[in-house]
Amino acid sequence: MQKRQFITMLSGTMLAGVSGLTRAQGAGTPGVTDSEIKIGSTLPLSGPAAGYGAVGKAMSAWFDLVNAEGGVNGRKLKLVLADDGYSPPKSLEQVRRLVEREQVAFIAGQIGSSTGLAARSYLNNAKVPQLFVTSGAATWLDDAAKFPWSMGWLPLYTDEGRILARHILRTRPNAKIAMFYQNDDAGKDVLRGLKEVLAAGGKPLVREESHEVSDPTVDSQIVSMQASGADVLVAWGSPKATLQSLRKAHDIGWRPTIYINPSASSVPMVLTPVGLDKVKGVMSAAFLKDPGDPTWKDDSGLQAWHAFMDKYNKGAAKEYLAVLGACIGQTVVQLLKQCGKDLSRENIMRQSLRLDMELPMMLPGLRIKTSDARPHPIPDMRIQQFDGTSWKVMSS
C-alpha cells in the first residue's frame, strides 16, 4: 500500500478541507520556523512505568509519516521526548527544559495524571499550551477555567467509574463489589466515580485496596479482596498490575466478575500471558480498538494501521498503547492544520476547542469533540467483554 493511500485511510475526515491552506507564518512563536514546528512531551522511558513510553514513540512515528507527506502546511513536525521516569518532580524539571531550553511551541501527549498536573501551573503561568495529556483526571475538565492552557485527552476517569458502576448495578444488582486501584489521581478518580453511582444505588464497596506503580507484586491486595467475600472486582491499574491481579485471582481459585483498565486490556500484552481461557468473561470500558484483537482483522482502519506501523514503528503493531499514541498524534496534526496561517500559542489553544473528528482506531460511533462548553476531547466509552478469543462491544 502506498504512503498516500494509507495516510488517507487512517486520517479520514481529519484531512478534509485543509489541503489548500497556505503556509503559516508563526512569527514570534517559539519552536515555529519556516520549516519546522517543534513539540515537546514528557514520558517514562525508564523505570517501572517505561512501558508507557510506547505512546510517545507511536506519536513520533505518526509525525514521521506526516513529514514524509510534506508536513503540515509545508512545515515538518519535530517531537522532542523527555524521560521523566513517571516522577512528578522530574516531569516538571523536564517540561521547564523543553520550554526554556528546547524552545518547543507547546507540550502534547504527556504521560500520566500526577506528572501532567505537576507541570500544569508552570505551563499556564507561561501561557504555553499543555495539550492532550494522556490522563482522564476530572481536574482537566473541572478546573479548565482556572487552567485554560491545559487539556486532557483520555475519557474522564470519573466517567469511566460511573459507566462501570451503572453496568454492574444493571447486570449484577446483588453483587458484592471490591475495587483494586492505582494509588494516584487517575485511580482515585475512577474510584470516586464508581462509588458515587454505587452509593446512589445503595451499594457500597465491601473492600477497596490500592497499589503503587512501583510495587513489585499485588498478590497481598488480591488475597485481601477475596477474603472480603466480593464477587465483583474492579481492577484498575497498570498493565503489569492488571496481569498480576488476573493471574493471582485465578491461582487462588477466586472467580469474581472482573472489570479492568482499558489501557491494560491488550490481548497479546496482558490477557495472553495470563492465559486466554483464564480471563474469559473479563470486561472493560473502552474507546479504542485493540490492534491485537481478531475482532478487527477485516477492519479497514486496522489494515491501514498495520501498513503504517510496519513502515514507521515496526514491532509495535499489536500494542494498545501505540494506538493511543498514534491517535494523539493524529489529533495534534488536525489541530495544527486548523490553525492555518496563525500558529500563535493563543490560536493553537483556540483551535484545540474546535475539534470534531473521527479516528479510524476509535470504536465505532465514538469521536473527538471539543468546545468552549466542554474542553475535553472524548466524552464517551463502551463496555466490552472478552469471550476467550476477542473483545465484544456490549453497551455504554
Rank of each mutant, 00 (worst) to 15 (best):
A126T: 10
K127L: 13
K127D: 10
K127T: 15
V128W: 02
V128A: 06
P129W: 01
P129I: 11
P129H: 10
Q130K: 10
Q130M: 10
Q130V: 05
Q130H: 15
L131D: 00
L131I: 02
F132Q: 00
V133I: 14
V133M: 05
T134M: 13
T134N: 14
T134K: 01
T134C: 07
S135M: 08
S135F: 04
S135P: 04
S135E: 00
S135L: 06
G136M: 03
A137D: 08
A137S: 14
A138Q: 02
A138T: 03
T139W: 04
T139P: 03
W140P: 02
L141H: 03
L141I: 09
D142N: 08
D143R: 05
D143N: 11
A144C: 10
A144K: 06
A144L: 03
A144R: 06
K146F: 01
K146I: 12
K146M: 09
F147N: 00
F147I: 09
F147H: 08
F147C: 04
F147G: 04
P148R: 11
P148C: 14
W149M: 12
W149L: 12
W149S: 03
S150T: 12
S150K: 01
M151K: 07
M151W: 11
M151R: 09
M151E: 11
G152C: 09
G152K: 04
G152P: 03
G152A: 14
G152V: 09
W153Y: 15
W153L: 12
L154D: 02
L154F: 11
L154C: 10
P155W: 01
P155R: 05
P155Q: 07
L156Y: 05
Y157G: 09
Y157N: 10
Y157L: 11
T158V: 14
T158W: 00
T158Y: 05
T158F: 00
D159E: 13
D159F: 13
E160Q: 15
G161Q: 09
G161I: 06
G161V: 08
G161D: 09
R162W: 02
R162A: 13
I163F: 09
I163L: 07
I163H: 06
I163R: 10
I163S: 05
L164I: 15
L164H: 08
A165N: 13
A165H: 12
R166V: 06
R166Y: 10
H167A: 12
H167F: 12
I168N: 02
I168R: 05
I168K: 03
L169W: 06
L169K: 05
L169A: 13
L169E: 08
L169M: 14
L169R: 11
R170F: 02
R170W: 07
R170K: 15
T171E: 13
T171V: 08
